[in-house]
């Protein structure tokens, strides 16, 4: 460990060099800077409910999940901040507290950005968001490794010459994903698990070893797809090259 950088720097090098997988390689460790909602006494709304829900899960909050930041929520937040070293423990839920709660990405982007988003910074976060949405829409209820596998298939397509070479190109390719055609991708909010799965895939986990198709064999699919070579079955999906 030769160097510790104060404003943390991410080296894409290892990942990049080892995979050498073409144009998408640089994206894996890009900066993430997004605005998150700041909550304090009196705040209301969905973000407050999310906060209360997580605090309740972790045993800090015992009130109702009503989306209103009141006395009980305040006590729970201060308590959480103290125990987890978020300083100052002032009951204001900002970026640091969201991160400590593991909810940063769940709420990021729900507030208006304070500054115009930088190009690469936004790209990275948008990528995670987009991927998590597809995972949620296509693989909710699947085992975790099955969700990682679906995300991995999408990333494999980006690197495959038979598919568009951008993430958005792959996801929005006409007739590529049922959930894009029927709009489910916009209606369903990704769970924490979906974000974790998307992140694992971005970090290189691929339970399909390079598959580029997946489908649910119990649902009607184009007969053409069955001509592909199946490499794995996870949960309700089969994966093929």
């Amino acid at each position: 460990m030769r160097r510790r950088v104060p404003v943390a720097l991410a080296v894409a090098a290892a990942l990049v060099l080892a995979s050498a997988l073409g144009p998408s390689w640089f994206q894996a460790y890009r900066a993430e800077a997004q605005s998150v909602p700041v909550l304090r006494w009196g705040s209301t709304g969905q973000a407050v409910s999310t906060l209360q829900w997580r605090l309740q899960q972790w045993g800090y909050y015992h009130g109702r999940i009503d989306g209103v930041y009141g006395a009980e929520t305040y006590r729970a937040v201060v308590n959480f901040q103290r125990k987890n070293g978020v300083w100052p423990a002032d009951g204001v839920v900002g970026e640091k507290t969201w991160r400590a709660l593991g909810l940063y990405h769940a709420v990021a982007g729900t507030a208006a950005p304070a500054v115009p988003a930088g190009t690469s910074a936004a790209a990275r976060s948008d990528e995670l968001e987009l991927l998590a949405r597809v995972v949620a829409a296509e693989a909710q209820g699947e085992p975790f490794e099955g969700q990682v596998a679906v995300a991995a298939v999408i990333l494999n397509r980006v690197r495959d010459p038979r598919f568009p070479n951008t993430l958005s190109g792959v996801i929005y390719q006409p007739h590529a994903f049922e959930s894009v055609t029927n709009g489910l991708i916009w209606r369903r909010t990704p769970t924490d698990e979906a974000y974790r799965a998307a992140r694992a895939a971005l970090n290189g986990w691929d339970p399909t070893y390079g598959a580029i198709f997946f489908w649910n064999p119990s649902k009607p699919v184009s007969p053409w797809i069955w001509t592909r070579q199946i490499v794995a079955r996870i949960g309700n999906h089969v994966f093929a090259v």
């Binding site: 943390a8 894409a12 090098a13 890009r30």
Partner: peptide, 8 residues
Amino acid sequence: LRLVETGE
């Protein structure tokens, strides 16, 4: 390769 900052 360019090293890119991350927030975390």
